[in-house]
Computed example of a mutant assay.
Amino acid sequence: MSFKSCRKNKDTIPDNPSHDYLGERLARTLKSEQGCFDFYIQPNKDPKKNNIENAMLSWDEKKSPQIKVGRLIVNRQHRVRDEMRMSACENMTFNPWRAPEVNRPLGGVNRIRLEVYLNQSKLRHDYNGI
């Protein structure tokens, strides 16, 4: 799956961006306009060639094209980076395995991610006293 920006005007990253450039840019953009991302999936139409255990393979988009299945709109907002929201984000846990089994991530890289996400979340929560 992938998300692609719907914005007509694309930003360029400066030569020497700050350590938090993307967060700063997100806040600045959402003050003046909504965020827009198209959501795509890429069904595996050639499982013999597209081995999900080999993360180095790029799937042939002629055989397994990406299909737009939705659009994510993020409304304009002015307090994207206030203390309360930043704290909520810092203490949030993301786990794509909290899904029906048929929708869970596949492949060795994703099995490793499961362990990394859980350990990283525990470490961050311990550090933050959560």
Rank of each mutant, 00 (worst) to 15 (best):
M92A: 05
R111L: 14
S87K: 08
C89Q: 02
K122V: 13
M86S: 02
R124L: 11
L106P: 00
A99H: 09
R124F: 15
M86N: 03
E101N: 08
R124K: 14
I112T: 08
P96W: 12
W97A: 09
C89H: 03
T93A: 12
M84W: 13
C89M: 04
S121D: 09
S87M: 03
A99Q: 09
G107S: 00
T93I: 15
G108H: 14
N91H: 10
V109A: 11
F94K: 05
N103S: 14
R104Y: 12
M84N: 03
P100V: 07
P100D: 05
N95E: 00
R113T: 08
P100T: 08
R124E: 09
D82Q: 00
S87D: 03
Q120D: 15
D82A: 03
E101A: 14
E90S: 12
V109T: 07
A88I: 00
N91Y: 01
M86V: 05
M92W: 01
V109H: 09
N119T: 11
V116D: 04
R85L: 09
N110C: 10
A88S: 06
V80C: 01
N95W: 11
E115M: 14
R113K: 05
S121K: 08
P105G: 03
P96R: 05
N119V: 08
S87T: 13
V80Q: 00
R113Q: 08
R124C: 12
G107A: 10
L123M: 09
P100R: 01
N91I: 09
F94C: 01
P105E: 05
N103V: 15
R85Y: 02
L114S: 06
E83V: 04
Q120M: 15
K122A: 13
R111T: 10
E101T: 12
Q120N: 12
L106A: 05
P105K: 06
E83P: 04
L118H: 04
W97S: 00
E90Y: 10
N95P: 01
Y117C: 11
R98N: 15
R111D: 06
N95G: 10
Y117F: 15
R124W: 14
L123R: 12
S87L: 03
